[in-house]
């Protein structure tokens, strides 16, 4: 179970990014996870929610894009999704060894929302 550490790293990255936008709130973070990344999406979601609860980032949405394994054929240069570990090129039948993606563990984006003037007013009056 290392999803706790991964969730923590995601939240830290968002926090760091959010500091560049002092008058905005981070609403959503997008991550890309490859099927070879050894990350369980459900466990990650669970950890993410547990860690963000009651913090500045409470309510931050996590969008996970699952990335399939892709190989490229050395013979005809076609890139294709590998299903059920079948590495034969769909175009020419060649056994394609070169894996070009599928082990992603990446941050894709953060969505930030500008604070509305009224919410700023209520904040400063607190």
């Amino acid at each position: 179970m290392h999803e706790m550490g991964i969730a923590n790293s995601i939240l830290e990255a968002v926090q760091k990014e959010a500091r560049r936008y002092p008058h905005a709130r981070a609403r959503k973070v997008g991550v890309r996870i490859g099927e070879l990344a050894a990350i369980d999406a459900e466990a990650l979601r669970f950890c993410f929610e547990a860690l963000s609860r009651d913090t500045d980032l409470d309510g931050l949405q996590l969008e996970i894009e699952l990335c399939p394994r892709r190989h490229r054929c050395e013979r005809c240069n076609c890139a294709f999704i590998v299903r059920d570990y079948d590495c034969r090129c769909p175009q020419c039948g060649n056994f394609a060894r070169e894996c070009v993606s599928g082990d992603e563990l990446e941050l894709a984006y953060v969505e930030v929302e500008e604070d509305e003037p009224s919410s700023l007013a209520t904040k400063s009056s607190q």
Binding site: I6, A24, L105, E106, A108, V110, E111, V112, E113
Partner: peptide, 14 residues
Amino acid sequence: MSRVVLQQKVLSEN
């Protein structure tokens, strides 16, 4: 709402 593109590894520090 505006989207900030981040192109970095989650474990970039490691």
